[in-house]
Design a protein around this nucleic acid. Sequence first.
DNA 1: GTGAAAGCGCTAACAT
DNA 2: ATGTTAGCGCTTTCAC
Lengths: 339, 339
Amino acid sequence: MPKRVTISDVAELAGVHKATVSRALNELTSHQVNTTTARKIQRAAIQLGYIPNIVARSLRTSLSMTVGVIVPDLTNPLFPPIIRGIENYLTARGYTALLANTDGQDRHEELAFESLLARRVDGFILATGHSQHPLLVDAYHRNIRVVMLNRGSLQVPYPLVTGDDADGIAAAVDHLAELGHTDILHLAGPQDFSTSHTRAEAFRSACSARGLRPRMTVASALNVNAGEQSTDAFLRSGKPLPTAIVASNDLLALGALRSLRHHGLDCPSDVSVVGYNDMPFAEDFSPPLTTVRVPHLDLGSEAARLLMEAISTEHQIPLTVTLPVSLIVRDSTAPPRDR
Amino acid sequence: MPKRVTISDVAELAGVHKATVSRALNELTSHQVNTTTARKIQRAAIQLGYIPNIVARSLRTSLSMTVGVIVPDLTNPLFPPIIRGIENYLTARGYTALLANTDGQDRHEELAFESLLARRVDGFILATGHSQHPLLVDAYHRNIRVVMLNRGSLQVPYPLVTGDDADGIAAAVDHLAELGHTDILHLAGPQDFSTSHTRAEAFRSACSARGLRPRMTVASALNVNAGEQSTDAFLRSGKPLPTAIVASNDLLALGALRSLRHHGLDCPSDVSVVGYNDMPFAEDFSPPLTTVRVPHLDLGSEAARLLMEAISTEHQIPLTVTLPVSLIVRDSTAPPRDR
DNA sequence: GTGAAAGCGCTAACAT
DNA sequence: ATGTTAGCGCTTTCAC
């Protein structure tokens, strides 16, 4: 590496002290310095190709201008838009995101947390929240800034950003009810995820509000395979076939779609399916998936906004932001066939 | 924030000098310190919950243990697995990735580059390479470590990791030829992307090697809309309908699928379609997409490996690593119907 | 094997 | 408005 140019080099070329350079180049203090010298410094900086060393600044200010973003798996299509939303907000403010995946393993999460802490991130956005989490409790007591995304914590009053799950599920059930469905199955996710739990609860109350009997089966994970296996098991169980399925997310819905296909059942004529999230390319599935659209980009930027607030505030205010969702009707739902 | 525990705190508790603590806690120097004192230090560190300050270490060693990863758009399903591959490799070695998106805009790329440089990343993985790029030339002269991913640079001898494009396209053409297709259209990407260009060339030579006349249409971008529009335009042009389309990537193939559907044409009975990349959920499209699988995870980890090598080496060796690809046959390809 | 001292590049009192 | 000084937390000579 060629020797990097530092603030002292700029100072020397501009014929001023390095403290003056520091002041001139910083937005917040540049007013303290004479316009003429400031310009001189600017020129010198550009001439030398000076790039400030944020590492050194961080050490001095104990502000790293980075935040840690922890997700279960980047490969889950849910997360890329969320992360883009986070980034959009952060980069506009000079912040950068440090990304880590946990693959749902607590051990990975601890490791990621520690590694990011070692890098002195100014705060975290956590999109991995289980309902209970010693890590979080510990973080809270250490006064670490955290914003939860999608899944909240029950133990610790960190701010939370989510879509309106209750409303989304209600819209799905309404839609099916209007089509004439009366026998609807909820393909739920693991109940220790707060979103899965919330949606299952929402399903129950939406059904009972409409005089429908809620039926439910629980998948072992939030992915396509689990959805397929769970639906397979249900279909093989001999229980009466529902005319519609409301899945707790699109991946599970996709699994249900695969399972129905393998069992020679047609969607939507035999069974309607509704997903949740409106993941990218949901409209290209076979059939195009009716689903609840969640504003993932907004979820991300809102979480970033809350975190920035938390960082710049002395006392954290536990705040829950609920963003509106909307039902996107495509071809996987239709009126039930008479049987 | 509660005052962070530093190396001095540990030193005090352990009753040694902080330099000794530093030596004891560093893998590479821990052998220099007496086993007994080392243990004493370990205990003190754990007792205090000491977390090393990588920021301070970076300042001292001018090694930040971070690398910048620049992609066009995280939301493109191509990239998440690549990034996971990168991360898997990096985290195992104590490194972390700093992620930035460019949305294909040179200005964004410059900004990202500068911001990451300010954070003193030890190197870059670039998955955005246009064929020419002043930024890269500049970086090369500044002796900055870079590994290119997917798309190479023609101007500067940075290492490159790609899938075997020529082989993949040849496999697609072979597959179609074996099914009996003789009139194949290549739905190409913008020709200033090196991958698009390589694949177009590969298509031409694969066709001529089999005595087929290559036909080609070029999309304006590498996304679904561009693919759809391009196919629309082709279908409306009145040119004779090919019996098969080989797209330069899955997104374009998806656009072609949408366009065919809108024109009342069935895939595969009217037109077969082959994609490229085997993006997640390609098997769930309507119809499930025949496509060329690229080992994205490996692409990422290989790039990370090369970068680690480049960082620890004095002189960079320009190396191109080509990973094997494989054709995945699904339902979007079938023998041509007699017309 | 361990301690002392210097310094990475920057910012923030304090002084002028 | 600018210069001086100290120090963020760590690693790394150099002594002992």
